[in-house]
């Protein structure tokens, strides 16, 4: 069996890849996909701990994470469409309506 730390390193690598995507990209759709990557990194560490502790509770958490990700996808993409209709762009640097 692969040691627990390797699963956690993989999970950290995915989370960091998502963070870099959120910080450096300016296309709202790619930022959105980076957030999905981060969610998956977290889900992986839940599953790894679940397997190594022999408890199924982590699986329930991942189930909830996937539910929230689905809800987030529906609402987030609807917001992106609404913003594109309003401003004609999805560059997040140009979307500053709420900036004081």
């Amino acid at each position: 069996m692969v040691p627990l730390s390797h699963f956690l390193i993989l999970s950290a690598a995915l989370f960091i890849a998502g963070t870099i995507g959120v910080l450096t990209r300016r296309n709202a759709l790619i930022v959105f996909m980076s957030i999905e990557l981060m969610l998956n990194g977290v889900a992986l560490s839940f599953l790894a701990f679940s397997r190594f502790l022999g408890s199924l509770d982590g699986h329930v958490f991942v189930f909830m994470v996937i539910t929230v990700a689905a809800a987030e996808a529906a609402v987030g993409l609807a917001i992106i469409i609404a913003i594109f209709r309003l401003k004609g762009t999805i560059n997040i640097d140009e979307i500053n309506l709420m900036k004081g």
């Binding site: 069996m1 040691p3 627990l4 730390s5 956690l8 390193i9 950290a12 690598a13 989370f15 960091i16 963070t19 870099i20 910080l23 397997r51 190594f52 502790l53 022999g54």
Partner: peptide, 21 residues
């Protein structure tokens, strides 16, 4: 983000090697 990755990897390192149940 690179620094964050190093910190996370460092945090994982201190975990005692654990055998899977």
């Amino acid at each position: 983000s690179g620094i964050f990755m190093v910190l996370l990897a460092d945090g994982v390192k201190v975990l005692a090697p654990q055998a899977a149940v």
